[in-house]
């Protein structure tokens, strides 16, 4: 049911091409100008999202039937507090996001109606993060690999054709909060390497130490830790975005 996703490969290729365009500044640099303290990282990222709701069933596919097999855009904001700077950075991050799937309800004969139905999702997350930016900081090597792991709470609500929160025939309300965890691996590309002087100015005037483009892959397990009374909102998501460290 799941289709191969070409985005990660394409994005990584793009990052590699950008990296190739970087002048040979990856050799040990001159003594850098004094940098402002680094404490936080702010990220905005986008990606496709589709939950594993239908995996729960053997005989039906409610998600696919109403929303189709396409992917939905998810947007996330994340703020990380960097509390350890030695060989890399260890940070604690909080994230919030939003996604929405829109489709049409099903008539009694199983065909699609003109009635709309929607599924809104607001993922909240806490992450522990490690970024290996030692080479970037010391040698201006423009790539920073990182990993994240943490806990999530996905707030969700499903709407019927009248725009009200859906209510199943047995009275169960179509809204809830589902909990779980995530693991992420990603690669950041240090944009400062493309324009060092501009990056220096950015730091001097605004306190922004580094600017990154990044791409990451996340495994989400969102099913209330295997609860037997929760929807499975797990997914595997590729995301890409922009990050600033300040």
């Amino acid at each position: 049911m799941r289709t191969a996703n070409p985005w990660p490969v394409a994005a990584l290729a793009a990052v590699m091409v950008l990296a190739a365009a970087v002048p040979a500044r990856t050799a040990p640099a001159k003594a850098p100008a004094k940098e402002s303290p680094r404490q936080f990282m702010a990220e905005i990222k986008f990606g496709p999202w589709r939950p594993d709701v239908d995996k729960e069933f053997k005989t039906k596919t409610p998600w696919k039937d109403t929303f189709g097999s396409g992917l939905n855009l998810i947007t996330m904001l994340e703020i990380d507090w960097e509390f350890f700077h030695k060989v890399g950075v260890i940070a604690l991050g909080g994230s919030v996001g939003y996604s929405q799937a829109s489709g049409h309800g099903l008539l009694e004969d199983g065909t699609k109606s003109s009635d709309s139905t929607k599924f809104h999702l607001m993922p909240l997350g806490l992450s522990l993060i490690y970024r290996f930016d030692y080479l970037a900081q010391r040698y201006r090597f423009p790539f920073v690999p990182y990993v994240k792991g943490g806990l999530d709470a996905y707030l969700w609500w499903a709407l019927n054709g009248q725009g009200d929160v859906s209510k199943a025939a047995d009275g169960v309300s179509g809204k809830g909060a589902t909990f779980g965890g995530h693991a992420t691996a990603g690669l950041m590309f240090l944009l400062d390497a493309l324009a060092p002087m501009m990056a220096q100015t950015f730091d001097t005037e605004l306190g922004v130490n580094n600017t990154y483009l990044f791409a990451e892959f996340t495994w989400n397990w969102i099913d209330d830790f295997g609860s037997k009374s929760s929807m499975d909102l797990s997914s595997r998501t590729f995301m890409a975005g922009l990050a600033i460290e300040f």
Partner: peptide, 24 residues
Amino acid sequence: PVPVLDFFEAYRAGPEVGKEKGGY
């Protein structure tokens, strides 16, 4: 107007009922 199953109704309908209990 005609009966229509929205997503969550479809999820909870039929012999194989979705396990989500909803609510907070």
